[in-house]
Structures are given as structure tokens and as C-alpha cells.
């Protein structure tokens, strides 16, 4: 198992190195003569208006909360998806995976399917509730109001 994660570690180190190494290299060799014009943020040649620290649209927060719940759901789906084939194959294949750690005598593909179906239905109820109550609505008529855009720029 560790060999696989050594690959992950190498990828992570290269990813960090590609960012950090040029920063260090250029900090060592470049001349430093800053002025106000040079220190201003570069935005494709356009003059920068306002500050980058604007308040984000708060509607993202609700979406993020819902996203977090479904991310946990997806993570619980992964182990199930890994072993579902073995459950279809029968208790012997499940036992080979479990290595004595679980009571696998009643394992069957239908049971695994029904178990995950119930799991998904329970969460679908939550999504339907949020959707039906209009919590996921974006209310575009408010977002496109020019007053907000002016406020964000100001």
C-alpha cells in the first residue's frame, strides 16, 4: 500500500516544487526596484477598480452546506462500490475480501443493492425538501439588481 502512496507523495512534492522553486529562484536573481505602478495588481492591462476583498454572494453558503452533505454521501458510496461486485458474486467472494473481519454468511447482491437504495432514498428526501421549500432557488431577479453591483464596486 505504501508504494502507491509514494506515488501520491511524489506528485504532491512536484506540485509544490513547481510553484515554490521559481518563486525562490526569481527572488534570488531579479533586481528589486518597486514603485506604485509595479506593485498594483495586474489585471490583463486594465486599471484595477476597488478592492479584491469584496463580500461574496451569500447564496453560495447554502449551496456549500448542501455540497458538504453530499460529499460525505459520495465518500460512503466508494467502499460500497468497491465491494458490490463481490456481493453479487456471493458470500464466498465477500468472505475473501473481509478476511474474517465480518459476518458475511448473509451477504448477497440484492441485500447490498437494497441497503444502498434505502441510503440514497433517505438523502433524496432531504434534497427534495430543500428543493421543494425553495432553499436552492437562486432568486436571479435580486442578483441582477444594478444596486448590488454598484455596491460591490464601490
Amino acid at each position: 500500500m505504501y508504494e502507491n502512496y509514494a506515488h501520491v507523495l511524489i506528485f504532491a512534492l512536484v506540485a509544490v516544487g513547481v510553484v515554490v522553486a521559481p518563486l525562490i529562484l526569481f527572488a534570488l536573481i531579479r533586481p528589486v526596484r518597486p514603485d506604485a505602478e509595479k506593485l498594483s495588481a495586474y489585471e490583463c492591462g486594465e486599471r484595477v477598480v476597488g478592492t479584491p476583498w469584496i463580500q461574496f454572494n451569500i447564496r453560495y453558503y447554502l449551496v456549500c452546506l448542501v455540497f458538504l452533505v453530499f460529499e460525505v454521501e459520495i465518500l460512503l458510496l466508494f467502499p460500497w462500490a468497491l465491494v458490490y461486485g463481490a456481493f453479487i458474486g456471493g458470500p464466498e467472494q465477500v468472505e475473501a475480501l473481509a478476511q474474517g473481519a465480518a459476518n458475511t454468511s448473509e451477504a448477497s447482491g440484492g441485500m447490498a443493492f437494497v441497503a444502498m437504495f434505502i441510503f440514497m432514498v433517505i438523502l433524496a428526501v432531504g434534497l427534495a425538501y430543500d428543493w421543494g421549500k425553495g432553499y436552492l432557488e437562486w432568486e436571479t431577479e435580486i442578483t441582477t439588481s444594478p444596486e448590488i453591483e454598484e455596491k460591490e464596486v464601490a
Binding site: L76, F78, P79, W80, A81, L82, V83, Y84, A86, F87, V94, L97, A98, Q99, A101, A102, N103, T104, E106, A107, M111, A112, A115
Partner: peptide, 12 residues
């Protein structure tokens, strides 16, 4: 560990 976790979630 993921497949053992999967089996345990579906059985015990």
C-alpha cells in the same frame, strides 16, 4: 482498507 470497510458497512 476501503474494501474491508465496504464489506463491514454492508454486513455488521
Amino acid at each position: 482498507t476501503a474494501d474491508r470497510i465496504g464489506v463491514l458497512l454492508m454486513t455488521d
